[in-house]
Amino acid sequence: MKIFKLAALIAVAIFSLTACGPNMVTKKQAYGEMYKEKPVSLLVLPPINQSTAADAKEFYDTTIAEPLTLHGYYVFPIEVIDSIMRNEGYPDTEELVNVPPQKFKDLFGADAVMFIVIKKWDTSYYVIGGNVKVSISYIIKSTTTGDVLWRYHDTLKVDTTGQNRVGGIAGLVLQTVETAVKTAMTNYVPIARRLNFIALNAIPAGKYSPVYEKDMKQRISKSQTQPEK
C-alpha cells in the first residue's frame, strides 16, 4: 500500500513536471518558413510606438542591433536606415505596416524586414509599490513573398518596490517615497535589453552563427509565437 502511494506521488510529480509539454514547440515547428527561406540580411524598421512614452522608440532602437547580429544575421546599420527613411518620407507610425515588404528588397537589398511594435513602456505606482513594464511584439517578414517568417511577443515587468524594513505608518510612507524614486530611476533600456535577450532566444540562428541550421530542435514557448489576440 505504501509503495502504491509513493508511486502515485511520483507519477503526480512527473506529470506536473511535464505538464508544460503541450505548450512547447520546436523552433522548426514554429518557424518552418524561416528555415526554408534562410534570410541572411535583416532590415530593422523604425519601431512602431503604441506606448504612452514618446521617447521609447528612439531609446529602444539602441538595443536591438547587437543581439540580432549575435544570432547570426547581417543587420543593416539602424541609424543609417532610419536617417534614409526619414529623408525619403517614409512613415514612422503604424502606416509602416502597409508598405509592402518587397519594397525594402529593391531599396536596400534586404532579405527580410523586422517590424517592432512597442506595446507598453510604462511605469505604475500604487500605495505600497511600483513596477516598470515593457511589452514588445516582433515580426519578421520576407521581402520575397511578404509572408511572416518569425513572430514573437513578450512582456517583462520589473518590480521597483522599495525594500526598507521600517514597520508601521512611518515605514509605509518611507517605502512609498523610496518606490517613487526607484521607479523613476529604473531605466527602461536594461529591461528592453533583457526582453530582446529572451525573445531572440526563439529566433532561428542566422548564417553567421555557430549554431546555424543546428537549432531546429530547440524548444520554445508556443504561446509567445502565436499572433496576439
Binding site: F59, D61, A65, T69, L70, V189
Partner: peptide, 17 residues
C-alpha cells in the same frame, strides 16, 4: 565571442539622450 561590440549600445543611447 562572435563580435566585439564594446560600449556601442551605451554611447548610442547617450548620443540620443
Amino acid at each position: 565571442p562572435m563580435y566585439y561590440w564594446g560600449n556601442y549600445s551605451q554611447t548610442l543611447y547617450s548620443m540620443k539622450k
